[in-house]
Nucleic acid binder design. Structure first.
Lengths: 244, 244
DNA sequence: TGATGTATGTTAGTAACCTCACTCAAATCG
DNA sequence: CGATTTGAGTGAGGTTACTAACATACATCA
């Protein structure tokens, strides 16, 4: 009889993994595994969020919308984070739209359970608040990046974030989708991608981008990539130091 | 004998005013009044913050810096907010630089006192977390604004935020300083200001901008102004409903 | 009063991105 | 298979903002 296929574990989420074991056991029963497909919508802007989502193998994009209907990504949330943490800050509505960027799994927890556990003012609360701090940094850095850096650099950043999440050098996404996340025109992505291809950093085809050498992308990306990554590592290390 | 000149009160800060009276009395003795001049630095990026600042008549700008030394404003904090709330999220360092944009007063509270009070998991905690939620919205909206809107619109937004803070149609600030807050070149501000002047929305002179009719600026500003303002009003109203 | 900063105005050239209007190629489906 | 849909590439023309270099005006102070 073959060994059972290792099931996806909520501990693959780095925030949950950073909780002291006792605390994790306490909330574990509230966690429900959900499988997502790219393009799925966790919630629309201004909707009431019923759950928090702790991604393990999926990657979530938070999109902030304008009145004109145009939207742009303000944060990417992978296994180092949680989507919907705003509810614990005392809010009922979610200001941003959350969509799935990569197929995969997340563990969700009812906001009622979340609030209850949060109110205990223990490790769970500290974890969510620490994450919120890192999220603030991510969004701030994104704001600066929008102001100062080129779409080409931002595409590189997007590629690296996706690569970090699922060590895979083939990216299945249309240029139109990338444009939506970056908040620019599809044509602009097309042009920038052509430039990157000319420099042999990527190879594009219909609905797909391939990266032959990921370190060449790392050399072309703006600092924002590293700043955000370091911030999450810092927060998580902080917990390990405290609890591990 | 004339009535004593009304002293500046910590309750002029809308967050503090939104606290239940009992709670406010509890922290009131920890509050210390500080007078600021435009240009004062509350803290540099990566510095350890020793205090939280609740502005009453001053206006604070949070500037996010890049490795290249260029910085851009990510949030403006007036009497509806508090500067440095990140420390309660579990952080010791402040990722952003905080400078004073308008002369005035703020009440400060030691981070040690803040943490102590925050740990009580009461109204004080809820207030700070609710504010953090609004701050997230403000920064997100700023990110979108950087991507989608013109410097001309952003100057209008800057003028309105300052006007809301101190109902005054004369703004004492050099174009270079405005450029620093917006994260653009001084020349760009100069050009945009000239355009606004041509449309009779403003009147510029050395280190000064005058606005003859503030509602004309309101007609020219991007939606981001209203979105952020509404969000703060919503948060504060939330408290009044709960406690008032 | 003249000298020295400092704030603003202005210009020319360039780069990035946008808009609009297409063409072309790949995938899908009847 | 051919028709349709979907994703990508392209090109003209415009706008916004950047870079760099300079001119002008105001403010202060010796």
């Amino acid at each position: 009889m073959p060994a059972p296929k290792p099931t996806n574990s909520a501990l693959d989420n780095r925030l949950l993994a950073a909780l002291p074991n006792k605390e994790f056991q306490k909330i574990n029963s509230s966690l429900e595994e959900i499988v997502f497909k790219s393009g799925d919508v966790l919630w629309e802007a201004d909707e009431k969020a019923l759950h928090l989502y702790f991604p393990t193998t999926t990657l979530i994009s938070m999109l902030h919308e304008t009145e004109g209907g145009i939207s742009a990504g303000i944060a990417a949330i992978g296994r180092e984070g949680v989507a919907g943490a705003g509810v614990v800050l005392g809010d009922v509505r979610t200001p941003d739209r959350a969509i799935v960027q990569q197929d995969g799994t997340a563990f969700r927890m009812k906001t009622t359970d979340v609030k209850e556990e949060f109110a205990e003012c223990g490790d769970f609360q500290h974890m969510l608040m620490g994450y919120t701090q890192a999220l603030l940094t991510q969004i701030s850095q994104n704001a600066i990046c929008n102001r100062l850096h080129t779409v080409e650099q931002q595409i590189c950043r997007w590629l690296l974030v996706n690569y970090d999440h699922k060590k895979n050098t083939t990216f299945l996404m249309t240029q139109d989708q990338i444009a939506g996340v970056l908040g620019v025109r599809r044509e602009t992505v097309s042009l920038a991608a052509a430039q990157l291809q000319k420099r042999h950093l990527i190879k594009t085809s219909r609905g797909k981008i391939e990266v032959p050498k990921i370190d060449r992308i790392q050399a072309a990306v703006c600092e924002c990539y590293g700043v955000i990554k370091d911030e999450y590592n810092r927060i998580l290390k902080n917990y390990v130091t405290k609890h591990g």
